[in-house]
Amino acid sequence: MDKSDKTLWAELVTRVARAQDAQAFTMLFEHFAPRVKAFLMKSGADPTTAEECAQDVMATVWHKAAQFDPARASAATWIFTIARNRRIDMLRRDRRPEPEDLPWGPDSETDQFDALALQQDTEKLAQALNALPEKQRKMIESAYFGDLTHNEIADETGLPLGTIKSRIRLALERLRHSMTEQKETT
């Protein structure tokens, strides 16, 4: 891909962002959708899943074209980053049990000591979360309770990806330290 191709793709994404230009999107779709599908298949997705994911990626390009910043990345890099994130989301989803895979009926009797210990750990974690600085707590809540990827948090907050990762890493270190400290005092 030469410089003129990079300029063309950036211009097309910009046209989609500014005017929802269907012709520009069609050109992007025809070029990138097969490449995204091939990329996803090389990373282990079956053809049907790769096709669905590629279409989802291109729909995201249509809806979030305004978030593209040619100063930060080329259009191809931006689109393939979306594809990589969708692939990660697919892997996470595939690892989750489906409702029919979850056990039904009453669980075996939980030992009262285990139930009390779990309740205490939950309360300690809630206290540790509340003790975090607000910016770090919000990142943890988005990543772990909101189930957002780091890139999705960056898109949502407008913060650089590095800032998101640093805040989450620092928050996890604080939580780990706080939980360890609380266990040592009990």
Rank of each mutant, 00 (worst) to 15 (best):
F80E: 02
F80R: 02
T81P: 00
T81R: 02
T81W: 00
T81G: 01
I82N: 02
A83D: 03
R84K: 07
R84L: 00
R86F: 01
R87L: 15
R87H: 14
R87I: 07
R87V: 05
R87F: 12
I88S: 02
I88K: 01
I88Q: 02
D89W: 06
D89F: 06
D89E: 11
D89I: 06
D89M: 08
D89C: 06
M90E: 11
L91S: 12
L91I: 07
L91W: 12
R92Y: 08
R92P: 00
R92D: 07
R92V: 10
R93C: 09
R93H: 13
R93I: 08
D94S: 12
R95P: 01
R95C: 05
R95F: 04
R95S: 05
R96S: 09
R96A: 09
R96D: 07
R96K: 15
R96E: 08
P97V: 01
E98D: 08
E98V: 05
E98W: 10
E98G: 03
P99S: 02
P99W: 00
P99T: 00
P99G: 04
E100Q: 13
E100K: 11
E100A: 13
D101N: 09
D101K: 08
L102C: 10
L102H: 04
L102V: 08
L102G: 05
L102M: 11
P103L: 06
P103W: 03
P103F: 03
W104Q: 15
W104E: 15
W104T: 14
W104L: 14
W104M: 14
G105K: 04
G105W: 05
P106M: 04
P106A: 03
P106Y: 05
P106H: 07
S108L: 15
S108D: 15
S108Y: 12
S108M: 15
S108V: 12
E109H: 13
E109Q: 12
E109M: 13
T110P: 00
T110G: 05
T110A: 11
D111K: 04
Q112I: 13
Q112L: 14
F113Q: 15
F113C: 11
D114L: 11
D114E: 08
D114M: 09
D114A: 08
D114Y: 07
L116T: 06
L116R: 12
A117M: 03
A117W: 01
A117D: 08
A117S: 07
L118N: 10
L118M: 10
L118H: 10
L118W: 04
L118T: 09
Q119L: 06
Q120W: 02
D121N: 14
D121S: 14
T122P: 11
T122D: 15
E123Q: 11
E123R: 06
E123V: 07
K124N: 13
K124H: 10
K124G: 07
L125Y: 09
A126E: 14
A128K: 00
A128P: 01
